[in-house]
């Protein structure tokens, strides 16, 4: 926002409301602690020492959907799990975003059969798809940064 240049002796700064809100939203986006399958292990690896997701303001994984802004669907969604997933999504407060992590969550992956939902976008709206089986932690981080860019571009009229 170029805060340093604008900040004079007067102690206040002017900024567009959109930008301020979107900045706040991107820098404290709390994901839900919600792993389904293999990708959840890579999500844990992204949280852990080598990749350190907290550099992006996402270190607080909340186990309760009521406290989280972002749902990372990490792994294959089965027909038995889909209603649960939808309920968790409905329990999350607005604004909320969804990252579909991995091939299984995005398209069904190698499991084109009776048990697996062919893409979680049949159940919840998805903002960012991350490819890979499973995606590397870097790929997940890239997906998150892509989501940040998307959120930074959100308009006031869309909030309603």
């Amino acid at each position: 926002m170029g805060l340093e240049q604008k900040l004079g002796d007067m102690g206040f700064v002017t900024v567009r409301l959109e930008e301020a809100v979107n900045w706040a939203r991107t820098n404290a986006m709390w994901p839900m602690l919600f792993g389904l399958a293999c990708c959840a292990i890579e999500m844990m690896a992204a949280q852990a020492s080598n990749y350190d997701l907290s550099r992006f303001g996402m270190e607080l994984m909340r186990a309760s959907p009521r406290q989280s802004d972002l749902m990372i669907v990490a792994g294959r969604v089965t027909r038995k799990m889909a209603p649960v997933l939808r309920r968790l999504y409905d329990q999350m407060p607005e604004p909320k975003w969804v990252i579909s992590m991995g091939d299984c969550a995005s398209t069904g992956g190698v499991f084109n059969n009776y048990a697996v939902v062919q893409g979680v976008d049949e159940v919840v709206p998805v903002d960012v798809y991350v490819a890979g089986c499973p995606p590397r932690p870097e790929a997940l981080i890239h997906g998150i940064i892509t989501l940040h860019e998307k959120v930074k571009g959100e308009k006031l009229v869309k909030w309603a």
């Binding site: 069904g108 084109n112 059969n113 009776y114 048990a115 062919q118 976008d121 049949e122 709206p125 998805v126």
Partner: peptide, 30 residues
């Protein structure tokens, strides 16, 4: 499901020639 007379169950793959046709049938995100 594991009975042999139970279908495996699959989703059709979308190519450019049948994209529109399958798109209509698929559940869509809001």
């Amino acid at each position: 499901p594991l009975r042999k007379d139970y279908p495996l169950g699959y989703e059709e793959v979308q190519f450019s020639f049948n994209h529109e046709e399958i798109q209509v049938r698929k559940p869509q995100p809001k």
